[in-house]
Design a protein around this nucleic acid. Structure first.
Lengths: 164, 164
DNA sequence: GCCAATTGCTTGAAGCCTAAAGAAATTGCA
DNA sequence: TGCAATTTCTTTAGGCTTCAAGCAATTGGC
């Protein structure tokens, strides 16, 4: 019996099962963690993940950011950010200021209250994440970082190839 | 100078920066790929990712599944599945049949049309995923699978500890 | 200066998603 | 049997998300 033809008979011409399983595992893993973080944010601080993420972006800068910057960094649509910011201004966490040189542009900043609350949440959040990844060794984490970077690069290459 | 105390001075008492960066990279990577898949499904087949996912679950079985099974497998809420199924029944892709032994239960199946369309989509989808992960070697993929499994286990452990 | 193209943001329609409350059916236990 | 607890599913209110269309302001080429 020819082992080679045997193998070919089992393997279909284009077998991409490995990639598919990898993608499903990646998705499951992220969904699981995201759900856990979402629950904890809700229970502990009564805040949603998108609001937390938006505040996290703003906490990194001192003098504010435009809506476009926010939507690029958060990888969500412009209209989405409009709504999120609106609700966070409403609740007193954010502050909008129209640019003086370009009246289309608005600079969004954390208010004093917003920054204080965010810092409090971020402290706990960081501990949750450390707990969630607690079973991974430093070496595991380094390796995972490296492979995810590679996967990200690969995905960006594929996305670019489709939309030149 | 004492190197040890030097190190301690730099490292904060609880530094969880690595875990946090890892989580952000995982999230970015998944969001990127998910967005790409979503776009392609929309452009090519005018279908949403949740609908595709739901049909993927149903394609795996012959004789249908209950709404509860679906919501567990998809890791989304019950009410969410109710709405998704409703729209897919509407469009002729799904078929509902009330259980004869328990009138609360409904078995959901793909229709002939639904299965045919799903198979067509799934074939292309698999190629997209293979392309998206194309830069990873088989060894990279094996290693990534292993580390993600470990991360998943760790997250499940953490989630369970919070909700006993 | 003029005006077409671009940029920054908002709006509207549609769909996705959750938590919580509730309706209907079944189960299990006294 | 009787009925309380549970299970399955739907509904509702609110928020998130996208895409496409639209408005207002700015820019750049002429």
């Amino acid at each position: 019996m020819n082992l080679d033809s045997e193998t070919k008979a089992v393997e279909l011409p284009d077998d991409h099962g490995t990639e598919l399983r990898l993608w499903l595992r990646l998705l499951t893993c992220t969904t699981l963690i995201e759900g856990e973080v979402r629950s904890r944010l809700r229970e502990r601080f009564d805040v949603t993940l998108p609001r937390f993420d938006l505040m996290a972006q703003l906490d990194k800068v001192q003098d504010g950011m435009t809506l476009s910057d926010l939507s690029k960094r958060m990888m969500v649509s412009n209209g989405n950010v409009t709504g999120l910011v609106e609700r966070l201004v409403e609740s007193g966490h954010l502050d909008r200021r129209t640019s003086e040189t370009d009246r289309r542009v608005q600079f969004i900043r954390l208010t004093k209250l917003g920054r204080a609350e965010f810092r409090k949440m971020a402290g706990e959040h960081e501990k949750w994440i450390a707990d969630i990844f607690g079973d991974l060794s430093p070496k595991d984490m380094r390796e995972l970082m490296r492979l995810l970077a590679k996967a990200k690069g690969s995905a960006q290459r594929a996305a670019k190839a489709r939309t030149p």
